[in-house]
Amino acid sequence: MATPFSDHQILESIASDADVMHTILDLSAQRKKLNLSLVLNIVVLYTKNTIFNIGVGLYYLAELQVLGLFELIKSDLEKLIKETESVCLIRNRRGGVFATKCCFLADQLDILAERHYNLRAIVDEMTELFKIQSLSMSMVYYLSAMGTIYFTFCSIWYNNTGFDSSLWGFLLIALSIAFLIADNSISPNLGFLIQDQVREINEKLSERTLFSQELDPRLETVFENYKLQLACNPIEYNICGLFKVERDRIIGMINSAIMSSILLVQWELK
């Protein structure tokens, strides 16, 4: 299993490779007009992108750790559900064994709920701390997708880049698009994975309704409180309070970038 550090290196490598591909494409497209001033401008732009990618990498690493902690909560909850199911099979409930085990399980479930609440608070703090970076990421990803499609068309349509008949040129463009897609999908998808983990935790809590017998009132109350906590405090991501980050909205942004690129291509053909 990949460690958070190795996954962080993968993200930085993909983001760096995407910027390298864009830099090479820019230099190749402007090679006939290449001068010291243009090279310095591209180097400065690449440096800014590198600094931006460091911030994105830190956000990704923090989310990766949160995802791992939610995975641990889900694993501990699965074990607790199995223990609770075995306690339900105890027939003699008048003795102290049943009450003691239920109290112990209730305490353990309270601890899990507290861990979940603390992680939820961390996610809120991360969203607030990186809200400017999140807005920048959305704008950069949107404009990069639109610009890459438009640049690909211009590289094939015109002869000044040399990519229209070069196998290496087509390969370079394909690699640039591949790295762009990977760079744009890793970070948002990690937030969706965290939401999926929370959804699975909620489903695990619902399994206690399938038990053959009732639980101790205190344990039942803790289960209900945990589910109520999940219902009242769902994990949501938003961009500076402007809109929520959802899968449907990401697809809409992709469609918008493609449509904008098509408009640019149509304007170029006139």
Rank of each mutant, 00 (worst) to 15 (best):
V56D: 00
V56H: 01
V56N: 01
G57L: 01
L58I: 09
Y59M: 06
Y59H: 05
Y60S: 00
Y60H: 01
Y60W: 06
L61N: 05
L61K: 05
L61I: 03
A62G: 05
E63Q: 14
E63W: 10
L64Y: 09
L64E: 02
Q65M: 11
V66C: 06
L67M: 09
G68Q: 14
G68K: 15
L69K: 15
L69P: 02
E71I: 06
L72E: 15
I73S: 03
K74N: 15
K74C: 07
S75Q: 14
S75G: 07
D76A: 08
L77G: 03
E78N: 14
E78R: 05
E78I: 07
I81L: 12
K82D: 08
K82P: 01
E83I: 05
T84M: 15
E85D: 11
E85F: 07
E85P: 07
E85V: 05
S86V: 10
V87M: 12
L89M: 12
L89F: 13
I90E: 15
R91M: 09
N92W: 08
N92Q: 13
R93L: 02
R93I: 07
G95Q: 02
G95T: 03
G96E: 10
V97C: 06
F98Q: 02
F98Y: 13
A99V: 11
T100K: 09
K101I: 08
K101E: 11
C102W: 04
C103H: 12
F104T: 13
F104R: 14
F104G: 09
F104C: 09
L105N: 08
L105C: 06
A106R: 04
A106W: 00
D107L: 03
D107N: 10
D107T: 07
D107I: 01
Q108G: 05
Q108Y: 07
D110I: 02
D110G: 12
I111E: 14
L112D: 02
H116K: 08
H116L: 13
Y117T: 12
A121Y: 07
A121S: 12
A121V: 14
A121K: 14
V123A: 04
V123Y: 00
E125M: 14
E125G: 07
M126F: 09
L129V: 11
L129H: 14
L129M: 13
F130N: 00
K131N: 04
L135K: 03
L135N: 04
S136G: 05
M137I: 02
M137Y: 06
M137P: 02
M137W: 04
S138L: 08
M139H: 03
V140T: 06
Y142S: 02
Y142P: 00
Y142A: 00
L143K: 10
S144V: 02
A145F: 03
A145C: 06
M146S: 07
M146T: 13
T148A: 06
I149R: 05
Y150K: 00
F151A: 04
F151I: 01
T152Q: 09
T152H: 09
F153S: 04
C154A: 11
S155N: 06
S155T: 08
S155Y: 09
S155H: 08
I156F: 03
I156W: 01
I156P: 07
I156A: 14
W157D: 13
W157Q: 12
Y158M: 04
N160G: 07
N160Y: 11
T161P: 06
T161D: 02
T161C: 08
G162V: 10
F163T: 00
S165K: 15
S166M: 04
G169D: 04
L172Q: 11
I173E: 01
I173L: 15
